[in-house]
């Protein structure tokens, strides 16, 4: 049985210009210990569908689904309090902008110890010790001193490591990483991805990686969902997807990679969509 199974997820936003469907009848399932990549361009609804799982969407969003089953329990049917116990403990999430994702007014130590104290029931001392271990585990040098640093005193890569440390603090079974490397330098991107994959393997957790970077997908994922304009276009094992893309949009995405360029001009998704006339 899948760890998380979502069937027919739809997310609508009420805007002044009328209702807007950001996610349209999408199915997602991920097994424990599996790495699932959700790819698609900006606005394809990949982040929104995962924010819906976390219950982090604003009030203007309406989330409907036939089922949103986590570990045999329906997230949408359970009481809010029960769902809140899962969020941040069993299901955690990291975001695209690591510096902005950390509270500028508190030390990073405070922010990670908070997770340990409130979610894991540790006292201050135990939380401090565990925070040092976690910082060490995510490769933050001199963790004891760094705990007293504020986010603005750290680099983007270090902040993302802090976010990852917070996300794994409660030994989650599912980690959702929303474009975790997009805001970082290329060299740091690789380090963070390696760290995530290493932690995923060691902790035996499921990882949903939201990205628009096909290179990242190829390197990390077991399975891939391709999303476009809020709809699922294709779902395949990573090898199949790269070797034998079924959907025109997937082919378009792959051919838009610089390394696949032929001729003077890089082909764009629009070229493919026009040629194959799909919506």
């Amino acid at each position: 049985m899948a760890l998380l199974e979502i069937r027919n997820l739809t997310v609508r936003f009420e805007t002044s210009a009328g209702a807007f469907t950001a996610v349209d009848a999408v199915d997602v399932s991920v097994d424990g210990r599996e790495v699932l990549a959700i790819v698609g361009e900006s606005g394809s609804g990949k982040s929104v569908s995962m924010l819906a799982v976390m219950g982090l969407l604003p009030d203007t969003a309406t989330v409907t689904a036939d089922a949103m089953i986590y570990d045999g329990r329906d997230l949408l049917a359970m009481p809010v309090a029960e769902r809140q116990k899962l969020i941040g403990r069993e299901i955690t999430m990291i975001f695209q902008e690591p510096i902005a994702s950390l509270n500028p007014s508190f030390t990073v130590g405070f922010q990670i110890e908070e997770v340990l104290r409130f979610n894991m029931g540790m006292d201050r001392k135990a939380a401090r010790r565990r925070a040092i271990e976690l910082f060490d585990a995510v490769g933050i040098p001199d963790p004891q001193t760094k705990l007293d640093a504020y986010p603005h005193q750290m680099s983007g890569g270090q902040c993302q490591r802090v976010m990852i440390a917070m996300a794994i603090a409660s030994n989650p079974r599912l980690l959702i990483a929303d474009e975790p490397t997009t805001a970082l330098d290329v060299t740091i991107q690789k380090q963070i991805l390696d760290l995530l994959m290493d932690l995923q393997e060691r902790h035996g957790m499921a990882l949903i990686l939201i990205t628009h970077d096909m290179g990242v997908v190829a390197e990390t994922a077991d399975r891939v969902i391709v999303q476009y304009k809020g709809r699922k276009m294709e779902e395949a094992d990573v090898l199949n997807l790269f070797e034998n893309p079924q959907h025109a949009y997937t082919r378009a995405l792959l051919s838009a990679l610089p390394e696949n360029a032929t001729g003077d001009r890089l082909s764009t998704v629009a070229d493919f969509m026009a040629a194959e006339a799909i919506q």
Partner: peptide, 23 residues
């Protein structure tokens, strides 16, 4: 974003508002 992070960490509404946002 950091308020969203606090929510994602599973902090209660009172703590998100009273600590993370208010500060």
């Amino acid at each position: 974003d950091y308020v969203r992070s606090a929510r994602a960490k599973g902090m209660s509404q009172a703590r998100v508002v009273g600590v993370h946002a208010l500060r």
